[in-house]
Design a binder for these strands. Structure first.
Lengths: 131, 131
DNA sequence: CGACCTCTTCGATAAATGTCAAATATGTGC
DNA sequence: GCACATATTTGACATTTATCGAAGAGGTCG
């Protein structure tokens, strides 16, 4: 079974993954609290981290976070990271699939908006032995 | 220039990356505070996130965090995640290269220990609009 | 030294990823 | 309907990644 197929089975990819805070006890010491992290949880967390683990996607998120309503359309985002529009569309799709962005069509343009809670949930999953 | 070469130029790979909290203002709203995240910072953060973004490595960390002194040797780790020893060694090397683990030889065995601060630094880099 | 244990490196392979150009949607306005 | 703007999909390609078995390196102990 390929990685993607595995994820599909565990987390119902593609399309919004279940919110991290609904899926597992992540606050405040998730990595440390599970003596042996369940393989399914490990895959679910890895998928979300992987969505973040790309310079282009991080820059997209940083840019969006700084915009009014934390949103923007594809055409404005492409110049920001100096990549082609198809590539940007590809990255935005991944961010949306993992719940880090939402997408809304408004006329000709498509507006992507940050979901800060999704980012926080991942951050909390990494807060070990604290809080 | 390949991705690895690019990282090497920016972050002096391989071997310990500079600690994240030394490299950039990450607490508490790093992604949101930089209007346009510097490409170099984006790569540096992406490298660390990528090190975390694997089920096997997450399980290794979770297991180690639960051990006395948050450490363990390769031979005990391999059975935990049901992968071959060479593969485990490969993952441990990556975690060490990004500063998430330290490594110490004690006689025949090699002990890897978690560096919680490194994990926290990454987590803080994702805490947007809070604290 | 030589047998043994632990760990890493090497070489190979299959899979996944990032990127682009070209083609295809989707929607607006004349 | 047609020209135009925006966005996504498709197909291709090179790079990176995860994994293993086999071989080698480091260390212990008889």
């Amino acid at each position: 079974m390929t990685f993607i197929e595995e994820v599909a089975n565990i987390a119902c990819m593609p399309k919004p993954l279940p919110a991290l805070h609904d899926a597992s006890p992540i606050c405040c010491a998730p990595l440390g609290t599970n003596p042996s992290l369940d393989p399914g949880d490990a895959v679910a967390l890895a998928v979300r981290l992987k969505a973040l683990a790309d310079p282009a996607r991080l820059q997209l998120l940083a840019y969006l976070l700084d915009q009014p309503n934390q949103e923007g359309c594809t055409c404005r985002l492409a110049p920001v990271i100096h990549l082609s529009e198809p590539t940007v569309s590809h990255h935005l799709k991944q961010l949306e699939a993992t719940g880090l962005l939402t997408k809304e069509r408004r006329g000709m343009t498509v507006h992507y908006r940050v979901v800060p809670e999704a980012i926080h949930a991942i951050a909390r999953a990494l807060h070990v032995n604290c809080c």
